[in-house]
Design a protein around this nucleic acid. Sequence first.
DNA 1: TTGAAAGCGTTACCAT
DNA 2: ATGGTAACGCTTTCAA
Lengths: 365, 365
Amino acid sequence: MRKGKKSPAQAPGDGPGPTAANGPRRAVTLRDVAREAGVSPATASRVLNGSIRNVRDANAARVRAAAAKLNYEPHMSAQAIARGSTATVALVVRGIDDPYFSSIAAGTVQRAEQAGLIVTMAVADRSPERELEIVRTLRGQRPRSIILAGSRIAGNGIRETLVEELAAYREVGGSVVVISQHDLPFSTVSVDNSGGAERLARALTGLGYRRFGILRAHTSLRTSQDRYEGFVAGLRQAGARLDEQWVIEADFTRAGGYAAARGLVERDIAGLELVFAVNDVMAIGAMTAFREAGMTPGRDIAVAGFDDIAAALDVTPALTTVAVPMHDVGRTAMDLALSGDDASTVRHVTADVALRESTPRIRRP
Amino acid sequence: MRKGKKSPAQAPGDGPGPTAANGPRRAVTLRDVAREAGVSPATASRVLNGSIRNVRDANAARVRAAAAKLNYEPHMSAQAIARGSTATVALVVRGIDDPYFSSIAAGTVQRAEQAGLIVTMAVADRSPERELEIVRTLRGQRPRSIILAGSRIAGNGIRETLVEELAAYREVGGSVVVISQHDLPFSTVSVDNSGGAERLARALTGLGYRRFGILRAHTSLRTSQDRYEGFVAGLRQAGARLDEQWVIEADFTRAGGYAAARGLVERDIAGLELVFAVNDVMAIGAMTAFREAGMTPGRDIAVAGFDDIAAALDVTPALTTVAVPMHDVGRTAMDLALSGDDASTVRHVTADVALRESTPRIRRP
DNA sequence: TTGAAAGCGTTACCAT
DNA sequence: ATGGTAACGCTTTCAA
């Protein structure tokens, strides 16, 4: 038995009234409400949370009154275990801090709220191992769905284990949605990273650019890799060639872009015309680094990014980028999660090139 | 009884084995693990989640092996109801999308993870009513703590109801932390909004500025109000006066700042030297609006903000602001939440003026 | 050290 | 329409 608070406290006869003691009073339960209303817990349950309408109006009213009077709020965990399902959706991101993820999260949360679900956030910024660990823990929450945003391609079996883990989760009734990981056997929101980057490359060569540098993240980041490869493909199509020495790997963050650009300016970059960073925060970091080095972005060196975060419009010059509708991505992910589509549906979202002042038409000598 | 899966399925004798059927297999439970290990559920519980170390090594090993083999993950909801407490913390923000809140959230989540807690996010961007509703729903989750970031001062009784609601929640064992709402009877992380703004005003007058405009949010937003009043106080101390016609109320967002600045430039603002926006996103929106109107921020008009979000360094000219250590705020909030300090502790965090190029020393005629 | 059993707050079946 | 009661998956007391 639990703490012996039943018999002594019950003798006097009623609810959780302020029993003069001071320790945390116990929360109001459905039984309290039922007692107050003079009905059985079953009836109270039917009124408050049940789907069926088989309760006499008079009783329903009394129950509702009692609930209001006692300020009753159903215990979600208890409901979860009684019903066998929760009202939770889990979202795994890499860094909430990042405008990309926070926009996706915003879209997700918005949709979840409409559906009466709560979303829990986990941050998997450290490593694939950590991500795996998180997914494992998440299973314990028994969420309806797990949405994975910005996950990695990990080597040495980690990825396989992750897939197994998620598959097992789906096996017991959960749904899994991944964002931009088109080769995982789950429902996917697929951002056209590769195509967008390709079109960007073509647009930029169209503006006259020929000598490119690229700031990309580690190859294990699928998003970065897709954008990189798409961009290179676009250059190739346009007959521009890429000098490997100007491809730099850095963190997928503002700091990463900043550091990479610093590294660049310390070398001889005469002749380098444009730097493409695989996301806007890196591009913006790079612009700041260039500026600090006395170069004016958009004049001495062109810069382009990817994502079209809000800040892309606020920097000077405004940043050329590829617009990803991040809210949509989040919403779509949630829609997929809730659709109950057991198949591994893929939903494509397009990414459009937005040419701005950071990449003016170039006048070649 | 529930779904009749007990008797028939039990006859053959064993666990949740793949019974040829295809519907969602049921998840592995502690009983399954216990059976597999040949011990009682009680023992399995002790090994897997119990604090006490009273299990023979051999048995412990078998239990662990069984758990691993079956890929068991404890059902958090079940634990929550059995133990009478959850491992969640609820965070209520106004818009995850906003860099201010996402940074706070990041700090919070980081700390929570260290403590083995999961955080659920709710967005209260709509209205005080909505916020109240959210808090109410949240109570159903029975989180250990509720952290309120960026909440409002609402009129007409809503605020009182909110306070009552939170008080009741604390009554039953939860802890409440509010950020920057120093007059609520709960533990508080108090950002020195008013002092920071005051120091900013003095620093700016020290640079020679005399004619100020202010972009602020609705008076119901405590943070905005504090910053506004602090700034005005600072001006007064420096003997500068504020022309009311240049105080504009707008949304607490980039779009709000942009719109307000548009409105400003459409009027005759000759003589206006500096615009202070009560947060960086508004200031940055304003800078963009000024630039679009053909004015160069930092030269034709000075601009200052508050928060020191990452973007403040990336805009041109770099934005003068008051630096709020947002990660710290988030972490501190979580620390307070977990400290179990029943008293309404207040933790102060300072905000330092950061003078940058958007407010150069002014040369008066 | 171990297991039986009660109990946590709900829901849903079954009978009334 | 209503109430009794088993069940959900786990923890913890109590007795062995």
